[in-house]
Nucleic acid binder design. Structure first.
Lengths: 160, 160
DNA sequence: TGCGGGGTTGATATGTTATATCAGTACATC
DNA sequence: GATGTACTGATATAACATATCAACCCCGCA
């Protein structure tokens, strides 16, 4: 069944498979352990294809029959976010599978406040006005959170 | 005693007074109630001049002799952030007094990961790469969180 | 085969941040 | 004095996150 990615419809089944395969390849290449738990959490994020709280993921792990406790979810999410297979959305205290697995990137997010869908895009925080301000202040930017909230095209007609 | 603002030393006593006065003026102009609790919380933020958690603020309110409960801090912080007298730092789950009170603005923050100091600057999230990506996706940006993490000039020499 | 080390998992407990709810109070207006 | 609105007090609970330590497993090595 198609779902929304970047607010567009796409072939979701293949995008799950590709996301998992990309992570698998990247882990093999970097000598990382893509364990069943980590794989399962990434699969959950890819399947739902939206920002999910750690405890929501935990509930799904429990439906799998695992008596999972919070650290189980947070450990897997730490791994996935550290290695760029998933991202944390600070604004939502939630996590989402990466849309550009493998590529080194500085993600930015577009969060629809009507339907809570999230699209990942690319930002260049060190460029533009922020970068100039940081330079002027003598501040070295190492990473940046960029999360825009607004209205997605699907909600624009219906919700104004 | 001078403290750091935007990583620079300044006359802190007058900046507290000016911050409170600016809030007072703005509230009068807009018909908002700048109650003692709200004033006290803003004063705490201005005095410490750094990002503070709600419970840290709560502890200080209790030192004042008030048997304050969490909603007390959150209500005051809601008021202050809604009307632009303070900002929430998502990355830190913390709050900081606004450095540009009164002016309508889209703030961005430079957060030092060594000393946790925070400088407020201005961003133009709807411009630049993010804005173009949003346009291309048909997404309307209404507000944006921009929080850069890195090394401030004071920590650059000492902490690398 | 036995040993030791690194990384992962299991399990318990706790810490931290945030909100829901409802009763009470203050003040302005009619 | 009745009414409405906004703010405050108080209790409880929800939601998010981490500390800690023991157990396990795989691997390399003697």
């Amino acid at each position: 069944m198609p779902a929304s990615l970047g607010f567009h419809t796409h072939d979701h089944r293949s995008c799950i498979a590709e996301g998992l395969a990309a992570a698998e390849r990247a882990c093999r290449a970097q000598g990382l352990q893509f364990t069943p738990q980590r794989r399962r959490v990434l699969e959950i994020l890819l399947q739902r294809h939206r920002a999910m709280g750690a405890y929501e993921i935990l509930d799904i792990l429990r439906e799998d029959g695992i008596a999972a406790q919070p650290p189980v979810a947070y450990r897997a999410l730490d791994f996935l976010t550290t290695h760029g297979f998933a991202h944390r959305i600070e604004r939502l205290n939630a996590f989402i599978a990466c849309s550009h697995p493998g590529a080194a990137h500085s993600p930015a997010f577009l969060i629809c406040r009507h339907c809570d869908s999230v699209a990942e895009t690319l930002a260049d925080p060190a460029r533009g006005r922020l970068g100039r301000a940081a330079d002027a202040a003598g501040f070295t930017i190492e990473c940046a959170v960029v999360e825009a909230e607004g209205t997605c095209p699907n909600c624009r007609g219906s919700a104004g």
